Amino acid sequence: EPLWIRPDAPSRCTWQLGRPASESPHHHTAPAKSPKILPDILKKIGDTPMVRINKIGKKFGLKCELLAKCEFFNAGGSVKDRISLRMIEDAERDGTLKPGDTIIEPTSGNTGIGLALAAAVRGYRCIIVMPEKMSSEKVDVLRALGAEIVRTPTNARFDSPESHVGVAWRLKNEIPNSHILDQYRNASNPLAHYDTTADEILQQCDGKLDMLVASVGTGGTITGIARKLKEKCPGCRIIGVDPEGSILAEPEELNQTEQTTYEVEGIGYDFIPTVLDRTVVDKWFKSNDEEAFTFARMLIAQEGLLCGGSAGSTVAVAVKAAQELQEGQRCVVILPDSVRNYMTKFLSDRWMLQKGFLKEEDLTEKKPWWWHLRVQELGLSAPLTVLPTITCGHTIEILREKGFDQAPVVDEAGVILGMVTLGNMLSSLLAGKVQPSDQVGKVIYKQFKQIRLTDTLGRLSHILEMDHFALVVHEQIQYHSTGKSSQRQMVFGVVTAIDLLNFVAAQERDQK
C-alpha cells in the first residue's frame, strides 16, 4: 500500500453525458421521505430548503428570480454533511469501515464536522487534520463531537509532509485500522450531490432553472449537481466560483495573481482535486475576500440567511453572472454553511477592521482624538531585521541585547519573508524542534498583521487588541530589464502597544 495517494490523481470516472444510468458502476440512493420521529440526527441530513432572495437581486438590477439552496440546514450545519454520511455509508457497505475503526480526514473543517457527527452516532474514533487558518468555532464544535484535532501550517503546499493532507496520511500509516475516506478522491463525494442535492433542486424548481452558481473546494458539490442538471435540464448554465489565490478556475489566465492566501474558508485549493470535473462548468468567476464577507453580511442583514463567507462569494458572483438572465428565468445559488463557524471572524466588526474589510468610518461609535491620525505620526525608528541564514542562537542574543521581542526576517534585497519572535524561538528550542545552530528560517511564521503608514491609529489599535505587534510595510514598484514591473513589500518598522501608548501619553502631556 502506498504511503500516500495524491489528492489530485487523474480521475478514473467514466461518467458521460447521455450515458444510461443503468451502466453506472456505483451504488445510487434515492431521496427517502422522513418519518415524523427521526431514529437519529443523521436522518436530518439532506432535504434542505430552497429560499427566495428578495432584496439583493433587485438591489443589483437582476431581472431573474434568485433562489438560495440553504445547505446550513443540514444536521452539522453545512453541505459537507451529505458527503460525510455518504462516504461512511459506502465504506461500511463495501466492508472497508468496521466497528471500532478510526476515521482520519484532512479538511478545512466542515467535512470534519460532518464526519465527527456521523462518527459520534456510529461509534468510530475520528481524527481531523486541518490548517491553522480555520476558525476556532470549527475546532470547538469538533472537540465537542469527540474528534481529535491536529493543526497544520496554512501556507504548507498540499504535497508537503507538513500539509493537512501529508499529516493525515502519516497518521494513517501509524494508526492500525485507520482510514482516510479522502473527500478529494472519493466518488461518494460527487455521488452524494448527484443522487440527492441535484434531485432536490430539480424537484423544488419543478425542473425549471436557467443558471446554477456554486463555490468550489473539493469540487464534489458542483460536479455532482452539474452532471445531473446537464442530464435533466441541459439549458442550465453552470457557474463556478473560485477565490483569488486558488488555481481551480479555467482558463488558467484567471488564476494569475501574486496573491497566495485568502481568508474565506472551505473553497479554493492549490491543486485540482480528483473529484472535480471542470468540463461540466460553463464559466468560472474569481471572487475576493472583501466581496465575500460584504455579501455574507448582506445576506444575514437583508435576507435573514445566517450563512458563512463562501455563501457571500457565491452570491457576489451570482449578481454578476445572472445579469444575462431575463424576467421569468431563474438562478439558484448554493449557500454551503452557517455563520456559526465564523462568529469571531467576519461577523465581528473588530475582525473586519483588522483585516481591512471594514473602515473605521463605517462604525458610528465615538472615537478618541488620536483615532484618525496616521501611523506615520508615530515617528517610528528604523527596524531591526535579520536574514533567514542567521542562526536561532545568534538571533536570540541580538533580540535580548537590543531589547526586542520580535524581528522581521528579510532577504538580501529587503523583501519581507516573515517574522521571528523570542517566545516562538525559545519554545521551539525547548520542544526540540530546532537547535541553536539551525537557521532562523526554520522558525519563520507568517501569521502576523501588516499595516501601512497611511493607515489610521484606530486601525492599529484594533490590531493591537488581539496581537502583540504589527509590521509596518510599504510597497515598492521595481522595474526589470524586460520592461515588466513587480510590486514588493518592504519593512518600514515594527509597532507595539507600548509605542502607541507612549505616543498618546506624550501628545497629551505636551497639550497640557
Rank of each mutant, 00 (worst) to 15 (best):
I238Y: 06
I239H: 01
I239R: 04
G240I: 00
V241C: 04
S246I: 00
L248I: 07
E250Y: 07
E252F: 06
E253I: 14
E253H: 03
L254Y: 05
L254S: 04
N255R: 02
E258D: 12
E258K: 15
Q259M: 11
T260V: 12
T261A: 03
E263F: 07
E263I: 04
E265I: 00
G266I: 02
G268D: 00
D270S: 04
F271I: 01
T274R: 06
R278L: 03
K283E: 15
K283P: 07
K283W: 09
W284G: 00
W284E: 00
S287L: 09
S287T: 11
D289L: 00
E291V: 15
E291F: 09
A292D: 02
T294I: 14
R297G: 02
R297N: 01
R297E: 02
L299Q: 03
I300T: 03
Q302K: 14
G304A: 02
G312D: 01
S313M: 04
A316E: 12
A316K: 13
A318D: 03
A318I: 01
V319G: 06
V319S: 09
A322E: 02
Q323N: 07
E324S: 10
L325N: 01
Q326E: 13
E327P: 10
E327W: 03
G328S: 13
G328F: 10
Q329I: 02
R330P: 08
C331V: 03
C331A: 13
C331E: 01
P336F: 00
P336R: 04
D337M: 01
S338H: 08
S338W: 06
V339E: 05
Y342F: 06
Y342T: 03
M343D: 03
M343N: 04
T344A: 10
K345S: 05
F346R: 04
F346H: 04
L347F: 04
S348P: 09
R350H: 12
R350S: 13
W351H: 01
G356K: 07
F357D: 02
L358R: 08
K359S: 12
E361S: 15
L363P: 15
K367S: 10
W370M: 02
H372A: 07
V375W: 07
V375P: 06
Q376S: 09
Q376T: 11
E377D: 11
S381F: 13
A382S: 11
A382Q: 14
V386T: 11
L387W: 13
P388Q: 13
P388S: 15
P388T: 08
I390A: 04
C392E: 10
C392I: 15
C392Q: 09
C392R: 03
C392P: 11
H394A: 02
T395L: 10
T395C: 06
T395W: 10
E397V: 10
L399C: 08
L399H: 02
E401K: 14
K402V: 14
G403K: 10
G403W: 12
F404S: 09
V410C: 15
A413Y: 13
V415E: 15
L417P: 13
M419R: 11
V420R: 00
T421H: 15
G423K: 09
G423E: 13
M425N: 08
L426Q: 07
L426N: 08
S428W: 13
S428F: 13
L429N: 13
L430V: 13
A431V: 14
K433R: 13
V434Q: 10
Q435G: 12
D438L: 14
K442Q: 15
I444Y: 13
Y445L: 13
K446A: 06
Q447L: 14
Q447E: 15
K449A: 13
K449Q: 11
I451R: 11
I451P: 15
R452I: 04
R452G: 13
L453K: 12
T454D: 05
D455F: 06
G458N: 10
G458V: 12
L460V: 15
I463Q: 14
L464D: 06
E465A: 12
E465T: 03
D467Q: 09
D467R: 07
A470W: 03
V473T: 15
V473N: 14
E475C: 14
E475T: 04
E475W: 12
Q476R: 09
Q476P: 15
I477C: 09
Q478T: 15
H480W: 07
H480D: 12
S481W: 04
S485I: 12
S485Q: 09
S485R: 12
Q487K: 15
R488N: 11
Q489K: 13
M490A: 07
M490Q: 15
V494I: 12
V494Q: 04
T496V: 05
T496H: 08
I498Y: 11
I498F: 08
F503L: 14
F503S: 07
A505E: 12
A506Y: 08
A506T: 15
Q507V: 13
E508A: 10
R509D: 12
D510Y: 12
